[in-house]
Nucleic acid binder design. Structure first.
Length: 823
RNA sequence: GCGGUGGUGGCGGAAUUGGUAGACGCACCAGCUUGAGGGGCUGGCGGGGGCAACUUCGUGAUGGUUCGAGUCCAUUCCACCGCACCA
């Protein structure tokens, strides 16, 4: 009779059943509320790690809970399958990225299935499948037609190790986000997505995403980097044109005494006088060779070179020497800065070094700055000085006044500037989605006509590891007739950034089998937006910004009806062990396979959910895993011991219960109430599990008492426990549920409701304080009046001792909770 | 420097609206069970004092508001994360 808890057999049994019956397959159903639940899809790197276990365990609790609650839950899974590691592995193993990727997917799919995750596997997709990326090519061409995809020559971030371009978002501390090599600057013709067209809306909607963590929104706002300022033209002294600057400090205009240009500024060389040419060229070369990270560090020595030219301050009419300066960034504002050494620290240091003029135009209140004795720039607000008609007003007002004066006089205009740059998507790599474009000597850049799509990524390619894209060496791919004029032309050999694929995969999940276009508008309309998205914080800017951009573009192309893709975002914490993030290099990884082999998937899931709330870092602890396993064993034994009682039990009759029995039943219904709220409202799975553990402790204590056993109550208590625990440990609960004599599975039963009467307290514990300190506890009937509670408290021996004969000055009563006697 | 998050027992963490600080679990200690190991069961477990009932202190620090503060306010220290020469 007694049977040990053996997860291996149980888990295989239920996983098999779910697979055969396609238990989690969904389609659109107008009769049910929909719930789109999504976890960030993995890169098929080889095998899953603990971060995946945690991410997908969190998701699965939500999915199973929502299904029990009657929602039509879309819960898909797929593979972010293009990318560099596949190519690198292919070079190393003399294999093929397609083979490596397919094998990894095969293996990792098996691992996910062993975790018992409730995905609709019929919707599985891999971004490297033609059935996926072909539609992305169509979307690219639609974006090209609208001017949202374009090509330009620019200085780009170049990773020499990966031999490819990186987006700004993929450069971390001047190094490649993937391989950590130093990133160099290189001038290349590149494809871009015009994300800057959406900068304003992307920013605006960060205030309309209440379901997102504040820090992610803040990071996105900072990344977009909107600022208000002015563009001002400084005429050249020789009368040949002007230099345009961007500034947010137009209030300091009268104090601008020289001009600083980025070394890459297009006017840098044309402004250089012949006598200065060799020195300027040497400076530009030097800056280009400097590592960008070092160059943009705050403490990097400010250096520059005089071009020999002068421009005119449009406010003062004074001549200003034009310098090139290493700290001026070419891709922010206009790449030219009006230098105000008295009120900007960088300009101050620069002016001191090159002995340039200083003019104070903002005086702190009650103080007079003297340029001769200043040791640092004064950057705070103050009173305007040396600024003509603006003298005497506050510098805060002067910002507006001078902006208005510039506009009126035609010398400048108010403008808004963004830090966000367009998204460079060209990658000089093979394992990606080919950019569907042809170059013709006569016709220029020609998009591949719709009838010729898709551009299939050829598989018969050699992986030598020598520089350059393998595609460029494949004549059969490169050489093509121009679709316009028919003459010999060349294909684009760059592929798209893998972040393009992950920018719309969640839309394709709505209709993965659709063959008439990228998206089935009706099905997308039914499912979108994603109700809950769950993933790592590392994508706070990259993926989550690109996906928002794509959703807005696809909305404007008529494919989707929503403004934002993800209504609620949960960023789960990292998995930590021995004080550091789990990683191969630290040698502190716990292999999910070993864990599942030893304890089963249910224990792995339970511990990863119990040890910390989802958004916090999880401190991995092998002994803690033992504790979770122990709990399941204890419950297993308890249910099995009670089976004979359960199987013959009738429904509970509240009228016949003893005091102990009513008390246990109260615990059952209170626990249902708490667990429901913890899962649904707060995603606090750790406290939900703790409450269930308390319930099990209570049931066990009751069952072990030598009381006449109440089979009806035990049945209600244990079966409620199984229902509550099901989202966390589904195999375990299904198995015991079946043993209790039920057929058809737990999800059909639905989430248990609680009986308010059964959960209601019969008497109340009132905390009695004297002067705010705990001095006694009294129990009173639930309907006790304030007067009777006060009388009861004052009559309490301990309370009386503390009152020491003094009469209360004031008595505060919090109904049903607490009484504070002030003396 | 700017922004965000956090600081509670030996450890992970509870305390949802300002109302019993330390739920639940881990580790540890004692006892029972078992041939031993393992496992299981029972009890204890913030610091100081006391045989004990009990008492006193205690949520990074300092001050404040309040009958009452882990929770609110001010100042401050520390840790982690993100951004950072952005004109």
């Amino acid at each position: 009779m007694e049977q040990r808890y053996s997860p291996e057999a149980i888990e295989a049994k239920w996983q098999n059943k779910w697979e055969i019956e396609k238990s989690f397959k969904v389609c659109e159903d107008a009769g049910k509320p929909k719930y789109y639940l999504l976890e960030m899809f993995p890169y098929p790197s080889g095998k899953i790690h603990m971060g995946h276990v945690r991410n997908y365990s969190i998701g699965d609790v939500v999915g199973r809970f929502k299904r029990m609650r009657g929602f039509n839950v879309l819960h898909p899974m797929g593979w972010d399958a293009f990318g560099m590691p596949a190519e690198n592995a292919a070079i190393q193993n003399k294999s093929h990225p397609a083979k490596w990727t397919a094998e990894n997917i095969e293996y990792m799919r098996g691992q996910l299935k062993r975790m018992g995750l409730s995905y609709d596997w019929d919707r599985e997709l891999a971004t490297c499948d033609l059935a996926y990326y072909r539609w992305e090519q169509q979307l690219f061409l639609e974006m090209y037609a609208k001017g949202l995809a374009y090509k330009k020559s620019s200085f780009v971030n170049w990773c020499p190790s990966c031999a490819t371009v990186l987006a700004n978002e993929q450069v971390e501390n001047g190094a490649c986000w993937r391989c950590d090599s130093d990133v160099k600057q290189k001038e290349l013709e590149q494809w871009f997505f015009r994300i800057t067209d959406y900068a304003e809306e992307l920013l605006e909607f960060t205030d309309k995403l209440p379901g997102w963590p504040e820090r992610v929104l803040v990071m996105q706002r900072n990344w977009i980097g909107k600022s208000h300022g002015c563009e001002i033209d400084f005429p050249l002294a020789n009368g040949n044109g002007a230099i345009r600057v961007y500034t947010t400090r137009q209030d300091t205009l009268f104090g601008a005494t020289f001009m600083s240009l980025a070394p890459e500024h297009p006017q840098a060389l044309t402004l250089t006088t012949p006598d200065r040419l060799s020195e300027v060229k040497a400076f530009i070369e030097k800056v280009k060779l400097t590592d960008k990270q070092k160059r943009t560090a705050e403490d990097f020595e400010k250096e520059g070179v005089f071009t020999g030219s002068f421009c005119i301050n449009p406010a003062t009419g004074l001549e200003m020497p034009v310098y090139l300066a290493n700290f001026v960034l070419t891709d922010y504002g206009t790449g030219a800065v009006m230098a105000v050494p008295t009120h900007d620290q960088r300009d101050f240091e620069f002016a001191r070094k090159y002995d340039l003029a200083l003019q104070v135009v903002i005086q702190p209140e009650g103080e007079r700055l003297d340029p001769a004795t200043m040791t640092a720039a004064y950057v705070e607000p103050g009173i305007m000085a040396n600024s003509g008609e603006f003298d005497g007003s506050s510098s805060i007002d002067a910002k507006e006044l001078i902006a208005a004066w510039l506009e009126k006089s035609g010398k400048g205009k108010k403008t808004v500037n963004f830090r966000l740059r367009d998204w460079g998507i060209s990658r000089q790599r093979y394992w990606g989605n080919p950019i569907p474009v042809i170059y013709c000597d006569s016709c220029g850049t020609v998009p591949v006509p719709a009838k010729d799509l898709p551009v299939v990524l050829p598989l018969d390619v050699a992986f030598t590891g020598e520089g350059g894209s393998p595609l460029a060496k494949l004549d059969a791919f490169v050489n093509v007739d121009c679709p316009v004029c028919g003459k010999a032309a060349r294909r684009e050999t760059d592929t798209m950034d893998t972040f393009v694929q992950s920018s719309w995969y969640f839309l394709r999940y709505c209709c993965p089998d659709f063959t008439a276009g990228p998206l089935d508008r009706d099905r997308v309309r039914y499912w979108m937006s994603v109700d809950q998205y769950i993933g790592g914080i590392e994508h706070a800017v990259l993926h989550l910004l690109y996906a928002r951009f794509f959703t807005k573009v696809l909305r404007d192309l008529g494919y989707v009806a929503v403004d934002e893709p993800f209504a609620n975002l949960l960023t789960q914490g990292m998995v930590i062990k021995d004080g550091a993030k789990m990683s191969k290099s630290k040698g502190n990884v716990v292999d999910p396979n070993g864990l599942i082999n030893k304890y089963g998937a249910d224990t792995a899931r339970l511990f990863s959910l119990f040890a910390a709330p989802p958004e916090k870092d999880l401190d991995w602890n092998d002994q803690g895993v033992e504790g979770s396993f122990r709990f399941l064993n204890r419950l297993w034994k308890l249910v099995n011991d009670c089976l004979p009682l359960i199987q013959t039990a009738r429904p509970v009759d509240p009228e016949t219960l003893s005091d102990e029995a009513r008390s246990l039943r109260r615990l059952v219904h209170k626990t249902i109430r708490k667990v429901s709220a913890d899962i649904d409202e707060r995603f606090h799975f750790n406290t939900a599990i703790a409450a269930i553990m308390e319930l099990v402790n209570g049931i066990q204590a009751f069952a072990s008492k030598k009381l006449p056993q109440n089979s009806a109550l035990l049945r209600e208590a244990l079966e409620s426990t199984l229902l509550l625990l099901y989202p966390f440990v589904p195999h375990f609960c299904e198995e015991l549920w079946e043993k209790c004599g039920h057929q058809g599975g737990i999800e059909l039963v639905g989430w248990p409701g609680y009986d308010p009467d059964a959960a209601a307290d019969e008497e109340l514990l009132i905390i009695v304080q004297v002067n705010g300190k705990l001095r006694g506890r009294i129990t009173v009937p639930t309907d006790a009046s304030e007067e009777s509670v006060k009388a009861g408290a004052l009559a309490d021996d301990k309370v009386m001792a503390y009152l020491d004969g003094k009469s209360p000055r004031k008595i505060i009563y919090v109904p049903g909770k607490l009484l504070n006697i002030v003396v």
